[in-house]
């Protein structure tokens, strides 16, 4: 049967770094050690002034093409997940098509999701491929949340970093699907748990007032309540068990939330991937950035991995894939 599979992933991070020492100097009630202990993050990468999601997306996509020895002409669809586009319009994916030299016959679109975005993108790529509409989909996630953070908001500045990841999803012949049907979830009543109010057309921006507001306890309650339910639904939908999964790669929100989720779900630590220490919470790129080193370990037997994205929207999605 024709099935979609995750072929390769490459990441791209900006050069700028925000260390715990720098944060501790600004917020004296938290030491650098306490920040590391509570968040699991040692440093975040921060885009420079004038460096945008599109720039990071280009870096990740070019790294992927080079790594795979792939000609841009072989990509027939581009999906770009970002909440920090260069412009209101045109679509960043269209600009990225030109920067990468993808064929003008390629489809390209942006979709606006945060921490659930990679899993949604994977589902869209799977659908395009398995319905015969595309053979090679370039799925790019890119965000620069640092540009939306109030300088004095300790709760968000300790967590978020900028970054991008490019994932090649391609058609292969296999005995069974390599990306199982994805389960989704949406609760717009929680829209204000994570929100940037200004800069759209409801509250036009006067300039430097596009600021992320996060209700930390609300997000925590959402995560602990909804993620286990989404996983139950995924297992019911796919007929699989937790034990069948060799690895679990969840959205790398922060070390504290991941630790609570792991314990609640009784997942052994050695199968629960935590890989955000040097990058922080990169929103839609956390899952592919954590998956990339697992893919490049290559030659071993195929492994089944559970992916769960959850966050702003509120929005969530869970998938079971073979890498």
């Amino acid at each position: 049967m024709l099935t979609a599979r995750i072929k390769a992933i490459a990441g791209h991070l900006p050069e700028g770094r925000l260390t715990n020492d720098a944060l501790a100097a600004r917020f004296p009630d938290w030491s650098a050690d306490k920040i590391l202990d509570k968040t699991g993050i040692a440093e975040r990468r921060i885009a420079a002034d004038g460096e945008t999601s599109l720039d990071l997306a280009e870096g990740a996509a070019k790294a992927l093409l080079a790594q795979e020895g792939l000609n841009p002409g072989e990509i027939d669809f581009l999906l770009l997940c970002t909440q920090t586009p260069d412009y209101v319009l045109p679509t960043s994916a269209c600009l990225l098509q030109a920067r990468l030299g993808l064929p003008t016959s390629a489809g390209a679109l942006d979709f606006n999701l945060g921490c659930s975005g990679f899993v949604y993108g994977l589902s869209l790529a799977k659908a395009l491929i398995e319905s015969g509409q595309a053979k090679r989909v370039l799925l790019v996630t890119a965000d620069t949340y640092s540009k939306l953070l109030a300088p004095d908001d300790q709760g968000v500045r300790t967590l978020f970093g900028d970054g991008a990841a490019a994932t090649l999803v391609e058609a292969v012949e296999a005995q069974a699907p390599l990306i199982d049907p994805v389960v989704f979830g949406t609760d717009g009543l929680g829209g204000e748990r994570l929100i940037v109010k200004r800069g759209g057309f409801r509250e036009p921006s006067a300039g430097a007032d596009m600021v992320l507001e996060m209700d930390g306890p609300g997000v925590m309650a959402f995560t602990l309540g909804h993620v286990p339910k989404a996983i139950e639904q995924l297992l019911a939908r796919t007929g699989r068990t937790m034990d069948e999964h060799d690895l679990f790669v969840f959205h790398q929100a922060n070390g504290f939330i991941l630790d609570r989720l792991r314990k609640k779900l009784a997942i052994p630590p050695e199968r629960f991937v935590i890989d955000m220490r040097e990058v922080g919470n990169t929103v839609s790129s956390t899952i592919p950035l954590a998956l990339a080193p697992l893919l490049s370990q290559g030659a071993g037997a195929p492994r089944r991995v559970m992916l769960v994205g959850f966050g702003v929207g509120l929005s969530w999605a869970a998938a079971s894939v073979v890498i």
């Binding site: 930390g216 306890p217 609300g218 309650a221 309540g225 504290f256 609570r260």
Partner: peptide
């Protein structure tokens, strides 16, 4: 952070998710 930690604590010991 203490509020978030308490929310997770109560979920763990009482199986109840409090309103933040």
């Amino acid at each position: 952070l203490a509020i978030i930690s308490t929310l997770a604590l109560v979920d763990e010991i009482n199986g109840v998710l409090l309103d933040g």
